[in-house]
Design a protein around this nucleic acid. Structure first.
Length: 456
RNA sequence: GGUGGAGUGGCUGAGCGGCCCAAAGCAGCAGCCUGCAAAGCUGUAAAACCACGGGUUCAAAUCCCGUCUCCACCUCCA
């Protein structure tokens, strides 16, 4: 199993720290505003990683995705809306979880920053004791990480301190690159966002929550740390600095997913070119969206367009059509994954290549269907089912709930059309079909019967 | 200025020294099937001269050098 380690900047042979088990920590959202496509891509990418390690390698995967539910932006957005920040955070988080659910991208654990404040304080104390953090010189309770004290600072992104732009020196810090571990409470901030600490009232800085939560959830050292490419610096660099300065092994490997772009430019909150989840779901169903999100290799950038989404709908439809037809005549049985599929997944999760195998199997299955070779149909169906499980393609995903009355109505129309066909009254038959189409129903005439399904 | 990534058919997107006269999907065309469709199968066009120019090699989309273009990070972001 090869994985591209973005810290080593090379492909590594993946060997779990503890035999049979894998600990993965992926940076989840800061719940400040609604999810956008980029969040979904990251979630799907790491969901596939977890699925493959579980299904393809029989590993016990502990996938942790944090929820950063205390942060400047949350406070700012809440105050702009005149709302309680905690309420906003919960609401946004629910929104995130709803989409993750819809896309089949769930995780083992969802630790919250606000539930780990004591652990963060302990962590910061430890850094101060070890000489890697200091209290601000301006009389506030700000605490900063001392980047100069940590000689490997910059190792994740291969940067030297002197080349970094840094922020303006302020807030009582010693160097531009030093970052806040603890932020002093400021006037006007809600009481509920202020915690006591050995240094005074305040709240945690941005990066410390992840270091503290990896420690609580996965221990001093764990296998993989993941997240979007845009988090490499400063967030992951700083996490790594904190945790290694604290004396912990931290992440053995790093994985970063590529970004979602629109016309070649990164989709981001600040640029305002983000495509909302509503936009996305208005154009395609969840299975197709997930397929699209996985259709480029996880390290490549993924360009968004309406066309590309429509392509995904067609491509998934092809798979789903085969499964539907095949399932009418054969059962899914136990079978091995195709070798090429396994090879592809083992090669740094090459999903596009794996999808090629999936489609080849579908074609073989369709050919078998056309030639009534039910043994081959069953084989193809079983393989497709297993591959879909690895990739998280919900094969029942296109089924819409239909009431008995609606089904009866549709079946009545189909019977009417088939009678017309038997009578060779094709004008009437086509009229009925047009009626069905208008209802959003697609029909398919098979040798001995007519089946129907909701159009995409 | 520093650090990374990318340029492959009409579109999306793999491949990263020989299995590549380049996977897979979408779109197009033709045939089969169908009353006609849909779904499906088969075949297939557009010079895919793999950004461009050199080089290494028996062999390069894949390695090296140079050039151009684009993107990301160094500020909040998956």
């Amino acid at each position: 199993m090869k994985i591209f380690d973005s810290k080593a900047q090379s492909l590594i042979d993946f060997v779990p720290l503890t035999a049979g088990k894998v600990g993965i920590y992926v940076c989840g959202p800061t719940v400040q505003s609604a999810p956008h496509v980029g969040h979904l891509r990251s979630a799907v990418a790491f969901d596939i990683v977890a699925r493959w390690l579980r299904i393809g390698h029989a590993l016990d995967v502990n996938l942790v995705r944090n929820v950063t539910d205390i942060d400047d932006k949350i406070l700012v957005n809440a105050s702009e809306l005149g709302r309680d920040w905690r309420e906003l955070a919960v609401e946004v988080e629910n929104e995130f979880n709803g989409v993750y659910d819809a896309l089949w991208a769930n995780v083992s654990k969802l630790p919250h920053a606000t539930a780990h404040i004591p652990q963060m304080i302990v962590f910061i104390e430890r850094l101060i004791e070890r000489g890697h953090a200091y209290l601000a010189s301006n009389g506030t309770s700000n605490v900063y990480f001392d980047t100069a004290s940590h000689k490997t600072y910059g190792e994740l992104t291969n940067q030297k301190l002197e080349n970094m732009e840094g922020e303006e020196i302020g807030g009582g810090r010693r160097a531009a690159q030093d970052f806040a571990l603890w932020k002093s409470a400021k006037p006007g901030e809600p009481e509920t966002a202020i915690w006591d600490s050995p240094w005074g009232k305040g709240r945690p800085g941005w990066h410390i929550e992840c270091s503290a939560m990896t420690l609580s959830e996965l221990g001093e050292a764990f296998d993989i740390h993941g997240g979007g490419l845009d988090l490499r610096f400063p967030h992951h660099e700083n996490e790594l600095a904190q945790s290694s300065a604290a004396g912990y092994g931290f992440a053995k490997h790093w994985m970063h997913n590529g970004l979602v772009t629109v016309s070649g430019t990164k989709m981001s909150k600040s640029l305002g070119n983000g495509v909302s989840v509503e936009d996305l779901f208005a154009q395609a169903n969840a299975v197709a969206i997930r397929y699209w999100l996985a259709s480029a290799h996880y390290r490549s950038s993924l360009d968004y367009s309406a066309i590309v989404l429509a392509d995904a709908v067609s491509a998934v439809g092809r798979v789903l059509n085969f499964v539907r037809r095949a399932a009418e005549i054969v059962e899914v049985s136990k079978t091995e994954l195709p070798n090429e599929f396994v090879q592809a997944m083992n090669n740094d999760f090459n999903v596009p290549e794996a999808l090629a195998v999936l489609h080849e199997t579908v074609r073989a299955g369709n050919t078998a269907l056309d030639s009534d070779d039910s043994a081959s149909v069953a084989e193809a169906l079983s393989k497709v089912t297993r591959m879909a499980e690895v990739l998280g393609i919900d094969l029942s995903g296109n089924e819409k709930v239909t009431s008995a009355e609606t089904a009866e109505l549709i079946e009545g129309l189909i019977a009417k059309r088939n009678q017309a066909r038997a009578d060779k009254d094709y004008a009437l038959a086509d009229l009925v079909r047009a009626e069905l189409t208008a209802m959003g129903v697609t029909i398919e005439d098979q040798a001995d019967k007519t089946v129907w399904m909701w159009s995409n």
